[in-house]
C-alpha cells in the first residue's frame, strides 16, 4: 500500500524550508536514517532552487508542487512547476575542482563556474538512485527523484 503526500507552495526562496521539512518528515516515515534524510532534504532544496532560478527565472512567478510516495521498495519525490522548459542536459557539470586547481584555475574563474550552476544538479545525480525529467505543455516541468528504501533490493 503506497502512502502519498502532497504540498504546494509559492515559488519563493523562504518556502523551500517548508519543502525540506515536508520531505524530511516523509523520509523519516519511510524509515531512512538521518544521513539519508539529510541527502533527500538537500536534493529537494537544490531542485526547488533550480525551479525558482531557471524554470521561473525569479520569485513569485509560479507554484512548486511536491509529492512524496512511499511504496514497498522506493521513496519517490516529484516536483512540478509551470515554468519554462528546463533542460537538465543543458546544465554544465561543475568543474572538477581538484584537477582544475592543479591546472591553475584561479578562484575567480572557479567562482564564475560555480555561479553558472550545475552544482545542485550534481548533488542530485550523486545522491539519488534514479532521476527523471519531463516537460509537457499541460503540466510544465516534472522532476522525479527516487531513493530505494534501505535494506530493500529493487
Amino acid at each position: 500500500m503506497a502512502a502519498q503526500r502532497r504540498l504546494t507552495v509559492p515559488g519563493r526562496y523562504p518556502e523551500i524550508r517548508k519543502i525540506c521539512e515536508f520531505v524530511a518528515a516523509s523520509a523519516s516515515e519511510a524509515g531512512f536514517d538521518e544521513d539519508t534524510v539529510f541527502h533527500l532534504e538537500l536534493c529537494c532544496d537544490e531542485a526547488s532552487t533550480n525551479i525558482i532560478e531557471h524554470a521561473y527565472g525569479g520569485e513569485d512567478v509560479g507554484a512548486i508542487d511536491v509529492t512524496t510516495i512511499i511504496d514497498n521498495a522506493t521513496f519517490t519525490v516529484t516536483l512540478q512547476d509551470s515554468g519554462r522548459p528546463f533542460d537538465p542536459t543543458a546544465v554544465p557539470a561543475p568543474p572538477d575542482i581538484n584537477n582544475d586547481l592543479a591546472a591553475g584555475l584561479s578562484t575567480d574563474e572557479l567562482s564564475q563556474q560555480l555561479q553558472v550552476g550545475g552544482l545542485g544538479l550534481h548533488f542530485i545525480r550523486n545522491l539519488m538512485d534514479e532521476v527523471y525529467f519531463t516537460f509537457d505543455e499541460d503540466h510544465g516541468n516534472t522532476m522525479v527523484m527516487v531513493k530505494y528504501l534501505q535494506g530493500k533490493d529493487v
Binding site: F38, E41, E46, T49, T107, S111, L114, L119, G120, F123
Partner: peptide
C-alpha cells in the same frame, strides 16, 4: 545543514580574500 547556495557564499568570500 548547508546547501550549494551556502557553499557559493564561502567560495565568494575565498575569492575576495585571495
Amino acid at each position: 545543514y548547508i546547501s550549494s547556495a551556502g557553499l557559493r557564499a564561502l567560495v565568494a568570500l575565498l575569492r575576495e580574500n585571495k
